[in-house]
Simulated scan of single mutants.
Amino acid sequence: MKRLTALTAVNMLALTSHAAADPARPPAHPHPPRAGIDFRAELQPIDGFGFSVAFQRAEPLHGARGLSPAEKREVLDLLLSKEKGAGLSILRLGIGSSTDRVYDHMPRSCRPIPAVPTLPEYVWDGWDGSQVWLAKEVKAYGVERFFADAWSAPVFMKTSGSENDGGELLPEWRQAYANYLVQYAKFYQQEGISVTDLGFTNETDWTATYASMRFTPQQAVDFLKVLGPTVRASGPKTELVCCDAAGWDRQVAYTEAIEADPTAGKAVRSWPIPTPTRRRPP
Rank of each mutant, 00 (worst) to 15 (best):
L4N: 14
A6Q: 09
A14C: 10
H18S: 12
A20D: 11
A21E: 09
D22Y: 02
P23E: 07
R25E: 06
P27A: 12
P30A: 10
P33M: 05
A35Y: 11
A35Q: 07
I37M: 12
F39L: 15
F39P: 00
L43C: 03
Q44F: 05
I46K: 08
G48L: 06
F49M: 13
G50L: 01
S52I: 07
F55S: 14
F55Y: 13
F55C: 12
A58I: 09
G66W: 05
G66V: 11
P69L: 07
K72A: 10
V75R: 14
L76M: 13
L78T: 09
K84N: 10
A86D: 02
A86H: 09
L88N: 08
L91Q: 02
G94W: 04
G94A: 10
I95W: 07
S97D: 14
S98Q: 12
S98K: 08
T99N: 07
R101Y: 09
V102E: 14
R108P: 00
R108A: 13
R108V: 04
C110F: 06
R111A: 13
P112N: 10
P112S: 13
W124F: 14
D125E: 11
D125A: 11
S130N: 09
V132T: 05
W133P: 04
A140Q: 13
A150W: 02
S152G: 10
P154L: 03
K158G: 09
T159L: 04
T159Q: 05
S160F: 05
S162F: 07
D165I: 00
E168Q: 15
R174G: 02
Q175C: 02
A178N: 05
N179Q: 13
Q183A: 11
Y184S: 00
A185H: 01
A185K: 03
Q189R: 14
E191Y: 10
G192K: 04
I193W: 01
D197H: 15
L198Q: 01
G199V: 04
T201D: 03
T204H: 02
D205W: 08
W206M: 13
T207M: 11
T209E: 12
T209A: 13
A211T: 08
S212Q: 03
R214Q: 14
R214V: 13
P217E: 01
P217W: 05
Q218E: 11
Q218N: 06
V221N: 01
D222G: 07
L224H: 05
K225G: 03
V226W: 06
P229T: 01
T230K: 02
V231L: 12
R232Y: 10
G235W: 01
T238A: 13
L240I: 11
C242I: 09
C243T: 06
A246H: 15
A246D: 15
G247L: 00
D249S: 15
R250P: 02
Q251E: 15
A253L: 06
A253F: 00
Y254N: 05
T255S: 12
A260E: 09
A260W: 02
K266W: 05
S270T: 04
P272N: 07
P272Y: 01
I273M: 12
P274W: 00
P276F: 00
P282F: 07
